[in-house]
Amino acid sequence: MDFVAILGSAIQQALGPTAIIYCLAAIGLNVHFGYTGLLNFGQAGFMMVAGYAIACAVTIFASSLWLGVLVGLVLAALLALALGVPTLRLRADYLAIVTIASAEIIRQTIAAASFSEYFGGQDGVTDFIAGFRDANPYSGSVGIPGLFRWSAFDIWVMTVGWLLVAISCLIVFLLMRSPWGRVLKSIREDENAVRSLGKNVYAYKMQALVIGGIFGALAGFMVSLRSAAVGPSFFATDVTFFAYTVLLIGGAARVFGPVVGAIIFWFLITALGGFFSQATAGSDPLIPEAIMDPTQASLMRFIFLGLGLMLLMIFRPQGIFGDRRELAIDAR
């Protein structure tokens, strides 16, 4: 068992582009769920419209990535409005069902063969990030020899990504310490009380939904930039659930919760994946093939993930490092 290799790839993933994507998605969910109590189960949908927006801006309209960014942000905001209108006056679980359904509607529509001319069907869209690649100021690669290394492109993606994370965290911090953020937290506690104090609860929820969706859009941009491609399989329902796991690990309603959560999540997932993959590899594997073959080994991390999400929610809903008294979500 090569623990150094496992550690190396775990660190690489924990700080790399994938962690950034889930961090941004979880920052959005933090605004939705952590601060406002809105159960958005369709974050993947917000990511998808944004991811496809930059891809299609280049491939269909032959315009720049920047226009794609603008369109992506606008689309994410519109999606939030469209989801909010029918559901924000209803109970929490309706929003959950509608958002998860909408994300699937978007995904299946974009994946449809009927629209493959525009969105490439199941294959998705590629060849659109030349502009982003050309802007890369780095060359060579960075890393700790023998442990891990990032290519120049990875470093470029990470620079942009962590910058976005930093800006997002700053915005969340500034918003949540303000009276505006206080109203959101109050809505999470009891929206009727807030209404009785003269606040337009519906408008606040809508604003929160839009802002969280925009953070989701940033995550979507990062997906298409780092992969140099977008496809419907990048935005499956589970992506949202993993982002929730990230948020809960770091602790909901904390500014840096999503950052801490994303790093820990990807460290553990990669390490688990590496461990089981090595334990089943070779001619004389650690775990006999009769018990676990390499395909099954690749599932182990998801089995642990599901179990982890349950145990986290039951025993440490305040996050791994959180203080139970500061638990912001209704878990008890």
């Binding site: 679980d93 395909t295 999400l309 039951i314 878990a331 008890r332």
Partner: peptide, 30 residues
């Protein structure tokens, strides 16, 4: 019995769904 809120239970059910789905795939294949 612990008085867990319905939203927390909903998230637990998501964890259970991910867990079971992968266990199913483990034994039944894809």
């Amino acid at each position: 019995r612990r008085g867990t809120g319905i939203i927390a239970m909903m998230i637990v059910s998501i964890g259970l769904s991910i867990f079971l789905r992968n266990v199913f795939q483990y034994f039944a294949g894809a």
